[in-house]
Every structure is written in structure tokens, then in C-alpha cells.
Amino acid sequence: MKIHTLVVLVQDHPGVLNRAVSMFRRRGYNIASLVVGHTETPGVSRMTIVVESDNVEQVVKQLYRLVEVLKISDVTEDPVVDREMVLVKLHVTGQHRAEIVALTEVFTAKIVDVATNTMVIEMTGGPAKVDNFIDVIRPFGIKEMMRTGRITMVRGAKGHSGAELIDQAAE
């Protein structure tokens, strides 16, 4: 199945996440990642949804049936900036510390916490770079890890702002 990235603008109401996610559940599609956050327009939230699907078009149409969904774009084929962040807690004994510090510099990651036997590293990048970083760091012993999931923005003038849609409706 093909992996699609959808950018979805929604009204910032309670339950809207539940409604949107339910559409994927109903069709039996697995969501690989989903990030929701505020946008430049008050009252509008933005989701980046990464989903495996052979027929994403149908899901998109059904998402549009939701009253609170403003706009959906499949940006899979568009030139985009893709970013996610990961926090990794490593089990680190003294002998490996220097090596890890060097690796974090290569990946422009940040060490945000150091304790006797652990280190927490923050790293941001495209999904491939994050994968790569995790692979490299794994042999040192990952105790905990959390990825944020992907946020995506189309490059150039084309974009996804809810401002116009909100203004039109208010008239």
C-alpha cells in the first residue's frame, strides 16, 4: 500500500480529532503518524496525517463530509519540508560519552539532559534523517524514545492557510 501524507485544516473544536480519526478506523486504515497543532489562524487547527492506503481519495472525500473539516490536501507528490523531532534517553557509561557527543554534533542533535548513567538527546530532522540517527545511536542502548510524528509544509508560495476560508464563511 502506498504511504500518503495529508495536510488537514479543521475547526478547533472538541471531538474533531476523534471524528477525523474515526474515518480511517472505519475503513480499516492504519495511521502511521498524526500530529495536530494550532496554526496562524485563530480557531483553525492543522493535522499532518501519514497513512497507508490504496484509496486515499475516497477517505479524503469522506473526511470532507465532516462539518468541521475545512481543507484536505494530499501532499505526497508535492515538494515539501518534512520534519519530526525525537527524544532519546540513552543508557550511557563513561566510556561512550565522548563518542555520543561527537555523533550528536554530526546530526546537529542536542544533548538536553545528562545524569550519572543516562543522557537525553533531542534531534530534529526529516523522517529519513531521524531514522538514520536512531539506527546509529541504537547500539549504545536506548532506554526510552519518543518521536513526535511528522509535520509537513509545502515549499514555495503554494500553501495551506485557513484564514481565507474563515473569512469567507464569516461574511
Partner: peptide, 8 residues
């Protein structure tokens, strides 16, 4: 007035 930016 009805305000439904996602329902047209």
C-alpha cells in the same frame, strides 16, 4: 448568523 466554514 450561521458560521460553518467547513460546510458548503
Amino acid at each position: 448568523k450561521i458560521f460553518l466554514p467547513g460546510y458548503r
